[in-house]
Design a protein around this nucleic acid. Sequence first.
DNA 1: GCCCGCATAGCAAGCGCTTTCTACGGGTCA
DNA 2: TGACCCGTAGAAAGCGCTTGCTATGCGGGC
Lengths: 418, 418
Amino acid sequence: MAVTLADVAARAGVSAATVSRVLSGNYPVAGGTRTRVLRAVEELEYVVNGPASALAASSSDLVGILVHDIADPFFGIIAGAVQSEMGDGDGSGGRNGRKLAVVCNTGGSPERELTYLTLLQRQRAAAVVLTGGAVEHPEHSPALASRLRRLADGGTAVVLCGRPPLPEPDAAPGAPAPVPGQRAATDEPAGGTEGGARPGGGVRPDGGIRPGGSARPEGGTRPDGGARSEGSGIVTVSFDNKGGARRLTEHLLALGHRTIGYVAGPAERTTTRDRLDGHRLALGAHSPALLEDAERLTVHGGAYDRSAGYDGALELLRRTPRVTAVIAANDTVALGICAALRDQGLRIPEDISVAGFDDLPFSADAAPALTTVRLPLHDAGVRAGRLALGRQAPPPGGVATVQAELMARASTAPPRAD
Amino acid sequence: MAVTLADVAARAGVSAATVSRVLSGNYPVAGGTRTRVLRAVEELEYVVNGPASALAASSSDLVGILVHDIADPFFGIIAGAVQSEMGDGDGSGGRNGRKLAVVCNTGGSPERELTYLTLLQRQRAAAVVLTGGAVEHPEHSPALASRLRRLADGGTAVVLCGRPPLPEPDAAPGAPAPVPGQRAATDEPAGGTEGGARPGGGVRPDGGIRPGGSARPEGGTRPDGGARSEGSGIVTVSFDNKGGARRLTEHLLALGHRTIGYVAGPAERTTTRDRLDGHRLALGAHSPALLEDAERLTVHGGAYDRSAGYDGALELLRRTPRVTAVIAANDTVALGICAALRDQGLRIPEDISVAGFDDLPFSADAAPALTTVRLPLHDAGVRAGRLALGRQAPPPGGVATVQAELMARASTAPPRAD
DNA sequence: GCCCGCATAGCAAGCGCTTTCTACGGGTCA
DNA sequence: TGACCCGTAGAAAGCGCTTGCTATGCGGGC
């Protein structure tokens, strides 16, 4: 670990400053000098000290990706896509060439989500991408929103992918503390402290002055500067869960189903709610009567996993043996449902239809191939990645919505005619 | 971002040093002072500056987990397990409480693997866990080994999970030649490597002073302290791919199959080779004649994914229409094989048996339920995580092997009697 | 009653890098 | 020919935190 900038400088016969400049490539350095430095770097196998560099530059090349369940391909696909955008897209090769995109597994726990966010904030991450539905909780949601805004204020790009945009920080603008109960601007000294503590006054390159409550992180010093522009600097790539769910249910209705079970995900997830909303929208549009039964035909699982589907299907069958179709919270749940149904001696789709959501890779291979709703997860991830890096202009209003497409396959068919 | 240690110190009416000590909890601080500091931290919503802290302490709480394909549950499960071990196991809440475990997606590319390793080295990561089979390449392997050893020398714990241990750094690969004296430490317990690697000698904070001695078992302030001991400080949790594959083939042989196709993974992965070895071992043990056919009955896919299975199965069928069973590189590939077979009008297992490997969650839900070999991925990940943090003593010889268990299910049956 | 030692807290010196600001040589424009 | 400017490189001041060493206050042993 010993080899430092100074070592390289000595070897190349230049000053540390020059080496630094060669490495970051944002300052003119004569060709010969550059070559000499590069060779010294090579010979000494010099590797920049990230922390030191981050400290001095008050920025880092860490990008955090938060996922609910890393073992779930849904998140894996998104995360992989985001990560694929982190390379040095501009081929500059400079220090800002490559970001260290890291994925953090929250396990669906709001606390861990917050913990990771703190860790990321501690590292002064360049960007944070939160994937998957948000957890709606009267206590957690405001805490999360406030932490995200604090991050954004600190210059970290925040992107939400697969969840609804943050609610407006209602009331009094100008204060970074958006949440009512949240210690109102108590510590507003922040600005003052800064000024006072620093004898050097205006030396601070970025945050130093920042007049008023301008939420916008500093302008050009740091690469991500210009791109984000919406109020909070928090952009969203949301999924059309509602529309997709609606189309799926319409498909089932069109096939003739009238008693449609629904094995939903955890009630507090926005994804769960949105999909359910879409489902009921379709039901209601078809006939109010159907809507009345909806409640009874809905079972909430504790997670988006296989066993939730298995158990949910059993419960559904117990409550309403005559269901002719079951919609799952997602494809994984659908697989569990299929298993349960088969164990009960029911054939799919002859005796009962099953539909999933997401169109994960394995869905087309299920037997029978699963009818589902395709979400362009990869594309969404790519987009989120670009947004995070400021390589793409944020969508108007800061929110982009990606569409969901019905994939009608073999697991759904008209109900038996008996 | 403005609030610094100094701000907190000012607010609490103490010095920055004291605040630092309260936060890291490795130095006696009077109760009242501690409370005051903690309150100030609370009020100012202070968040440590990671880079600064890492720079000063020359250590960080980053732990990198490298995976080939983040969208593949195989890796997701391992990574999730590793990550689950990163919490503050001792509940100390101190700075060393929580590590930022991040997963990096190499996409199976050796270059990206190296790139990530550099990035991690740059961050002075506390540990690095490499998961999944290694890529065997005359150029890449030495480069990787050398980089890993450099990491280890720099104090980063390196754990290999699911791949064979690093070969001995045998003589004379002229290159930036890794560490001459290093190997000697093999028989040397603990201290050797550690002490030698640190020119600064007594500077290391470790056991340093720690007055008061809050009887914490873990190796001192800095985690990796004494735990790793094998020569290079690189430990391995390897999978018994060979044994598992062997048992799987034996199962098929016992059922009566004699023409067994094999859709393998990319040829250069150690996982591929090991599984194939196990397969052929079983074949050879049964009858040399079978071994002769093995070559012709093996198809290599370009990846461990569904389409490799689909295409591989088709190719196999083309070459040898009379195969009665097909073994897949892993479960995902098996699914692709099943799809192809079904598309060809073959029934599983009546017409042809199919077996996978890994026993991923969806395998039990496939139709028919997939016969496969179960690898305790979660356990292995947990173990790797503990090893990485030095929370668990390294296994003798630095290598632990986890066993594979045959899961005979419905996708395999005796061959048709025609 | 004095001195020693212990428990606490502060001082200040860095950690390795970035980034002004300054220095300097040579070419250019009057 | 002299004042300037441009292109380069170096000196040095931090970035915010950790930690060895030092200072202070107090209780107890002789």
